[in-house]
Structure formats: structure tokens, C-alpha cells
């Protein structure tokens, strides 16, 4: 006999114990619920124990350290966007979080939930990958870390094993010469699912030469992808039009999209290249500014 139940573990240890000792009972973690509740109503109504992980200190902590930033997995996007210091450091990531749904959705939706839900079009995912985010995961054998680009393993599938949960994301702290950006294309101006998206983070030196870069694309493959060829096209350049065009071309080449009502394969390949050029220009200007 299975039925719905609700649990609010008070510590990570309790959460892990609950998730790993569940036996045949299905457990589902709950953060802001903006994916969970929609899925519960439409896709899959089977009973389960809903484990609310957003009250844990580790999933709520926000720590801006001297060389790293830790963002708790369950912090709502609206809360992140009210933090002026974080916004100044990671404007691209926060813009990506700010694109998730309406004001109401942002009051609940977390970037941890966006990542764990593993939608190909999840807006924060390319921005996290571009920022070199590392997932901090708790499980029965302690904590482990995994690069954001390795966390999503397929459509709706993440790399968490039974008993594991995502605590937060560790991001290398941007210097005054770092800039990030995320752009997506949607047919409307608000409330839509990305046709394509691109996140870029660059570092420049005093002469404006790009010394480090990461580029990631979303909604154009089963998972968001890191595009090393696009980064290679930027590193060593002055981030001029030719370099941006080469990075854009690398993104178009790396994309393996599907055709659906929001865009054809050819269209998405082209658009993701354009988004890369524009996002890289914004990241460059932020890095220089």
C-alpha cells in the first residue's frame, strides 16, 4: 500500500537517511515545487513521499567568499536577484535565473531545482556551466562534487544516485576582469521556453586580451553542452568581431537540436550562434567595465 506523505528533514543527515532507507517507497525532493507540482498534476500522479529539502541550512546558504561563491540549491530566484552584491558579481547567472517564469514563479523557483529537473531548455543550466559551477552533492557516503556540465545526463535525468541530494553550487568568484552573460531566444518577451540559449564567461587582461573563457549552449541538444571549441576561439583574442563570429560558428556546429513547433533544426543552429556572439560581447564589456 503506498500513499502520499510529506517529510521535512531537519538536517542533511536526516534527509540522506530518509532518501536511502526508503525501500520501495518512492521519494521525490521538493524545492520551490514549480516543476514538481506541475508534473504531479499532469504527468505522473503516482503516490510518493515528498521530501522538502528547502529548509536545510545547506540548501539555503549563500556565501560570497574570497575566491568562491556558494549558492544554496533551494534559494528562490527572486531572493538571489535581490542580492545586490551577487548581482554585481554574476549578472549573467542572475539574469538567467530571472528569466525563469513570472514574478510568482521566481518567488519559488530555485536554480538547484532547475538543474535537477534537467530540462534541455532549463535557463540557468548554460549559465551555471559557463561559470564553471561545481555541484555539491550529499549522499550516504558523504559529500562529492561534480562539474555542472556532467550533472545533467539526459532529458529529465541527472547524475544523482539513490540517497543523494544537491546541496548547492560552488562558483569560482569573478575578478574585476571577469564578465558573464546569458541570452535566450523566445518568440515572446516573457513566459516562454527557450528555443536556444547561450551562456558565456570570459576573463580579460589589461590589454583586453581574453585569458580564459567558457561557453555553454542550451535547448539545442538533449542536455546543455559546454562548447570548448567556442572557448578556444575566444581565448587569446581581443574578443573582436572575428573571434566572436568563430565562437558563434563553433556553437552552431556543436548544436544537435530537434525541430518542433518553436523552431526547426536549421533555425536553432543559426540562432544559437547569434546568441553566442551577442552574449560574448556582453560578457566582454562587463569584463572590461
Amino acid at each position: 500500500m503506498s500513499s502520499f506523505a510529506f517529510a521535512t528533514p531537519a538536517s542533511v543527515a536526516d534527509a540522506v537517511a530518509l532518501l536511502s532507507d526508503a525501500g520501495d517507497t518512492r521519494c521525490q525532493m521538493l524545492a520551490g515545487g514549480t516543476d514538481v507540482l506541475v508534473q504531479l498534476k499532469s504527468l505522473d500522479r503516482t503516490p510518493r513521499t515528498i521530501v522538502d529539502i528547502k529548509a536545510l541550512p545547506e540548501t539555503n546558504a549563500l556565501d560570497i567568499g574570497s575566491d568562491q561563491i556558494y549558492i544554496g540549491a533551494a534559494i528562490p530566484s527572486a531572493v538571489l536577484n535581490e542580492n545586490a552584491e551577487l548581482k554585481a558579481l554574476l549578472p549573467g547567472l542572475l539574469e538567467a535565473a530571472d528569466l525563469i517564469g513570472s514574478t510568482q514563479i521566481q518567488g519559488r523557483a530555485s536554480i538547484g531545482g532547475n538543474l535537477c529537473n534537467a530540462s534541455p531548455a532549463g535557463d540557468s543550466i548554460p549559465a551555471l556551466i559557463a561559470n564553471g559551477a561545481v555541484c555539491v552533492i550529499a549522499g550516504p557516503s558523504g559529500q562529492r562534487e561534480l562539474a555542472a556540465e556532467d550533472f545533467v545526463v539526459g532529458v529529465g535525468k541527472n547524475a544523482l544516485d539513490k540517497g543523494e541530494l544537491l546541496l548547492g553550487l560552488r562558483i569560482p568568484k569573478p575578478t574585476s576582469n571577469t564578465g558573464d552573460a546569458y541570452l535566450r531566444f523566445i518568440p515572446r518577451t516573457e513566459m516562454d521556453i527557450a528555443v536556444a540559449g547561450c551562456g558565456v564567461r570570459v576573463d580579460v587582461d589589461g590589454n583586453g586580451v581574453c585569458t580564459a573563457a567558457r561557453v555553454a549552449i542550451g535547448a539545442v541538444a538533449p542536455t546543455a553542452l559546454l562548447v570548448p571549441d567556442a572557448a578556444a576561439a575566444l581565448i587569446g583574442s581581443k574578443l573582436d568581431d572575428d573571434a566572436l563570429a568563430a565562437a558563434g560558428a563553433a556553437c552552431s556546429a556543436a548544436a544537435s537540436p530537434i525541430s518542433d513547433k518553436r523552431g526547426t533544426v536549421e533555425y536553432r543552429q543559426k540562432v544559437v550562434g547569434v546568441l553566442c556572439r551577442r552574449a560574448a560581447a556582453i560578457a566582454r564589456d562587463r569584463a572590461r567595465g
Binding site: 510529506f6 521538493l30 520551490g32 515545487g33 514549480t34 507540482l37 506541475v38 498534476k41 499532469s42 515528498i50 522538502d52 528562490p76 527572486a78 517564469g101 513570472s102 514574478t103 510568482q104 514563479i105 518567488g107 519559488r108 513566459m191
Partner: peptide, 27 residues
């Protein structure tokens, strides 16, 4: 709608605007 799209169910939860159709009663 019941799926977070229309806002007819808007309430505040600890002062923050949310869709009550996407919040569990137990929360």
C-alpha cells in the same frame, strides 16, 4: 490553470508573491 501559468491563484507566502496552485498545503 492549476499549472502556474495564469496567476489567478496568486497569494503571498511570508510576504512573497507565489502561485498557490504550485504550493502544497502542508508547506
Amino acid at each position: 490553470c492549476g499549472t502556474g501559468d495564469c496567476g489567478a491563484c496568486s497569494v503571498t507566502l511570508d510576504g512573497r508573491l507565489v502561485c498557490s496552485c504550485l504550493v502544497l498545503g502542508v508547506e
